[in-house]
Design a protein around this nucleic acid. Structure first.
Ligand SMILES: NC(=O)c1ccc[n+]([C@@H]2O[C@H](COP(=O)([O-])OP(=O)(O)OC[C@H]3O[C@@H](n4cnc5c(N)ncnc54)[C@H](O)[C@@H]3O)[C@@H](O)[C@H]2O)c1
Ligand SMILES: NC(=O)c1ccc[n+]([C@@H]2O[C@H](COP(=O)([O-])OP(=O)(O)OC[C@H]3O[C@@H](n4cnc5c(N)ncnc54)[C@H](O)[C@@H]3O)[C@@H](O)[C@H]2O)c1
Lengths: 204, 204
DNA sequence: GAAAATTTGTCAAATTTTTCACTATATTAA
DNA sequence: TTAATATAGTGAAAAATTTGACAAATTTTC
C-alpha cells in the first residue's frame, strides 16, 4: 500500500504505536512481531500490519519489525523531526504540571513562556512568566507554534480569540469548553472528563 | 432507531455532546437544533441527528432538541447517575491537579484517598494521603470503583498489578506506558503527548 | 388559515475501517 | 538440505460509520 494516503483512523493510532516503540527501544528490544504489538495495545495483529503497511512496510517476514526504524518513520509522519515553540496561558495546576513535565520530547517541544493574570508564581528554571497583558506584544516578537490554554473555563474563549488575533494557529485547550474559532485554526481539546466517562460507561 | 445498540463511534462522541449541553444548560439555553450543535463541535448536522436518534429521538421537528432532556439522557447512558469512589496513586503534579479540580461532577466522582511513597504532601481538605504500603489494606476495607495512576512511568506497572490484585477493575492511567493487565480490567489511558502530536501532524 | 420556513427522523448510498484468508519470505530445526 | 515454523504483505470481503436526501411534523409569517 506504499504511496497511498494514510487514513484518519491510522493517524489516530500512530501516537500509541510511537509510545510503545519508544518503550521498547528504551528496553533495548530490536525487533518485534505485529502479534506482540497487538496484544500490548489490545488491538488485532491484522490491524497492526495493515496500519504499518499503509506507510510503507518496514517489517521483515519471519522476523517482525525493526523497532528503531519504525519509531523513526512514525516520528517523521507525526512531524516530530522538527521542534516547536510553545507558550502556556494560565499558569495554575495544569499549566505548572505541563511546564514541569520532562516527558514531552525535549527536542521537539520547547516551553518558551507562560502568561497569567497573576505573575507572582514560581516557574521552572528557563521559563518566563509574563502578565497576560503582554501576550500580543510577546507574540509579535517571538515565533510561537503552539499555545496551550490552561485558564479557567470562563477566560478560555476570550484568551483564545486574542491568541488567534495575534497569529497563533495551533491551540491545545484544557479548559472544558467548546471553543468557537475560525476553521483554519487547528484545535486539540483535552477533555479529561471524557476519559472518566469511558470508565463509567459500561458496554454490554 | 430506538432500541438498537449504540455503536462505539457514537459512544465516543457522547462526552462531547454532554459537555456542550452542560455549557448550554448553564447559559439557560432550552432548545437547540442539530445544526448548531454540529457547528459548535465541528461535525455535520446529519451526524448529530443520526447519533442522537440512535438512542431514541428526543428532538422535535421544527424546533430542535430539549437541552435538559438530552443532557440527562446522555448522563444516563454514560453511567453518570450514580457516584464513583476514586483513589489517586502517586500524588505529584498530576495527582494534585486532579484532586484539586472541582470540574468533575461533584456528585458522580468522589476522591476518597491518595497514596504515595512520600506522605509529607499537602492535600486538599477532605482527602486523606496514605503511604503506598497501606494500599492493600485500604482496598480491603473500602469500596473503591476507580483508581487513578499518577506515578512515574517506572512505578506504574507494579502499582497497577497491586491494584488489580486488590480487586480494582477500572484504572485511569496517566503514566506514559502501555500497562499489561488482564483483559477484564477496564483501562483508560490519558496520553497527553498524543494530543500534542495531533497538532504537529499536518494533514494535506 | 394558508403558505413558507424550520428542523427532526430515517432510509439508503457512499465511504471508511476492520477483519479474514492466503501468499511470499525468512528463520530454525531436523 | 529439507521440512517446519514464524511472520509480513496484501487483496478482498465484511462490518461499521458517515453522508445525503427527503418525507413528516411543527412553527412562523402574512
Ligand atoms: N486540574 C485539573 O485536573 C483539570 C482537569 C480537567 C480540566 N481542567 C481545566 O484546566 C484549566 C486549568 O485548570 P487548573 O486546575 O490549572 O486551574 P487553576 O485555577 O489552578 O489555574 C488557572 C490559572 O489561570 C489563570 N488565569 C485566570 N484568568 C486568566 C486570564 N484571563 N488570562 C491568563 N490567565 C488567567 C489563573 O490565575 C490561574 O493561575 C481549567 O479550565 C480547568 O477547568 C483542569
Ligand atoms: N506533569 C505532566 O504534565 C504530565 C503529562 C503527561 C504525563 N504525565 C505522567 O503522569 C505521571 C505523573 O506525573 P507528575 O508530573 O505528577 O509526576 P510527579 O513526579 O510530580 O509525581 C509522581 C508522584 O508519584 C509518587 N510515587 C513515585 N513512586 C511511587 C510509588 N511506587 N507508589 C506511589 N507513589 C509513587 C512520587 O512520590 C510523586 O509524588 C507520570 O507518569 C508522568 O509521566 C505527566
Amino acid at each position: 500500500m506504499k504511496g497511498k494516503t494514510i487514513s484518519e483512523a491510522v493517524i489516530r493510532r500512530l501516537p500509541r504505536y510511537f509510545r510503545y516503540l519508544e518503550e521498547l527501544a528504551e528496553k533495548g528490544v530490536e525487533r518485534i512481531p505485529s502479534s506482540r504489538i497487538a496484544s500490548a495495545l489490545r488491538v488485532t495483529a491484522s490491524q497492526v500490519r495493515q496500519d504499518l503497511c499503509s506507510f510503507g512496510g518496514f517489517g521483515q517476514q519471519g522476523l517482525g519489525y525493526n523497532v528503531e526504524m519504525l519509531k523513526n518513520e512514525i516520528a517523521d509522519i507525526l512531524g516530530l523531526t522538527r521542534s516547536y515553540n510553545m507558550i502556556i496561558v494560565g499558569f495554575g495546576n495544569v499549566g505548572a504540571a505541563l511546564a514541569g513535565y520532562m516527558g514531552f520530547s525535549k527536542e521537539a517541544f520547547i516551553f518558551k513562556a507562560a502568561f497569567d493574570i497573576d505573575t507572582d508564581k514560581v516557574v521552572p528554571e528557563g521559563l518566563k512568566l509574563y502578565s497576560i497583558d503582554k501576550i500580543e506584544d510577546y507574540l509579535a516578537n517571538n515565533q510561537i507554534d503552539i499555545a496551550v490554554i490552561c485558564t479557567p473555563k470562563a477566560a478560555a474563549q476570550s484568551v483564545a480569540e486574542r491568541l488567534v488575533a495575534a497569529g497563533i494557529t495551533k491551540i491545545w485547550n484544557f479548559a472544558p469548553i467548546e471553543l468557537d474559532l475560525p476553521e483554519n485554526i487547528t484545535l486539540e481539546n483535552t477533555n479529561m472528563s471524557a476519559s472518566l466517562y469511558m470508565l463509567t460507561y459500561s458496554r454490554r
